[in-house]
C-alpha cells in the first residue's frame, strides 16, 4: 500500500514536470522585450522558492532536534534527518538558481553577475548551507548532530541580516539593472506556466526530500544497530 502510494506520487510528479516543461516552452507566449530567454524564469523562480522552502524545513529540523534531543531521542533523530535532508535538497535547488540566473542575466543585462541584493543573498545562503553540509561531513561522532543543528540556526539568523545589508548597500548606489518581477504585469498564460512549474518543482523537491530522509533514517538505524551489537559483545 505504501509502495503504491509512493509510486503514484512519483508518477504524478513526473506528469507535473512534463506539463510544466510543456507549458513553459510551448504554451506560454513570447515575452515582448526579452523573447525566448525570458522562459528561463519558469525554472529559475520556482527553484528559488523551493530552495527557501527547504531551507526553512531544515531550520525546523534543527530547532526540533535541539528541543527534543534530551527528552525524546527517537524524535530528535527524525528531526535531525529532516534537517539534513532539507539542507541538501535546498542546496540543490539553490545551485539551480545560481546557475540559471547568470545565464539569463548575461542575455538580459549583458553581465553574468552583479552584487545585487537578491543575488548576493542567494549566494551567501548557498555558501552557508554548503558549510553546514561540510561540517556534517567533517565532524565525526555523535556530537555532530548537535553541532550541525547549532550551525543551522546561526545560518538561518544570518540570512535576513545579509538581505538587509545588501538592500541598504544597493539603495545607496542604485544599480542600472532591475529584477523584472514575475508578477509585474504578467499575462494569464504566463502565470499558468509559472504556477505549473512551481507545483512541479515543489512536488519533485518533496519527493527527493522524502527519499533523502528515508536514506538518512536507514543509516541512523544501521549505526544504532552497530553500537548495540558492540555493546552486546562486551
Amino acid at each position: 500500500m505504501k509502495k503504491l502510494a509512493i509510486s503514484l506520487y512519483a508518477a504524478f510528479t513526473v506528469y507535473l514536470l512534463i506539463r510544466g516543461f510543456h507549458q513553459a516552452i510551448f504554451v506560454a507566449p513570447d515575452e515582448s522585450t526579452m523573447h525566448e530567454i525570458q522562459r528561463i524564469f519558469y525554472y529559475h523562480v520556482p527553484s528559488a522558492m523551493s530552495a527557501f522552502l527547504f531551507f526553512a524545513i531544515s531550520l525546523v529540523g534543527s530547532i526540533g532536534f535541539l528541543a527534543s534531543r534530551r527528552n525524546q531521542p527517537e524524535f530528535a533523530q527524525r528531526f535531525d534527518a529532516l534537517a539534513l535532508a532539507g539542507a541538501e535538497v535546498g542546496v540543490v535547488f539553490c545551485s539551480v538558481v545560481l546557475v540559471t540566473g547568470p545565464i539569463w542575466g548575461r542575455r538580459a543585462w549583458g553581465i553574468w553577475w552583479t552584487w545585487d541584493a537578491r543575488l548576493t543573498t542567494t549566494l551567501i545562503l548557498w555558501l552557508i548551507y554548503v558549510s553546514y553540509l561540510l561540517l556534517r561531513r567533517f565532524a565525526a561522532g555523535p556530537q555532530v548532530q548537535t553541532l550541525a543543528a547549532v550551525l543551522g540556526i546561526f545560518g538561518a539568523i544570518d540570512v535576513p541580516i545579509v538581505y538587509m545589508a545588501n538592500r541598504w548597500w544597493r539603495t545607496q548606489h542604485p544599480s542600472p539593472v532591475f529584477f523584472g518581477g514575475a508578477d509585474s504585469g504578467i499575462s494569464p498564460k504566463m502565470l499558468a506556466a509559472f504556477l505549473w512549474n512551481i507545483a512541479a518543482w515543489i512536488a519533485w523537491g518533496v519527493l527527493i526530500l522524502g527519499f533523502r530522509y528515508y536514506v538518512e533514517r536507514q543509516s541512523q538505524k544501521a549505526l544504532a544497530h552497530e553500537a548495540q551489537q558492540a555493546l552486546d559483545h562486551v
Binding site: I37, I40, Y43, S47, S95, T100, R107
Partner: peptide, 20 residues
C-alpha cells in the same frame, strides 16, 4: 537566446537528476 535557454534548462536538469 535559444542556446542560452537550452543551456539553462539542461543545466537545471543536470543538477537535479545528478543529485537524484
Amino acid at each position: 537566446n535559444h542556446k542560452f535557454l537550452v543551456a539553462a534548462y539542461v543545466l537545471a536538469w543536470t543538477i537535479q537528476s545528478g543529485y537524484a
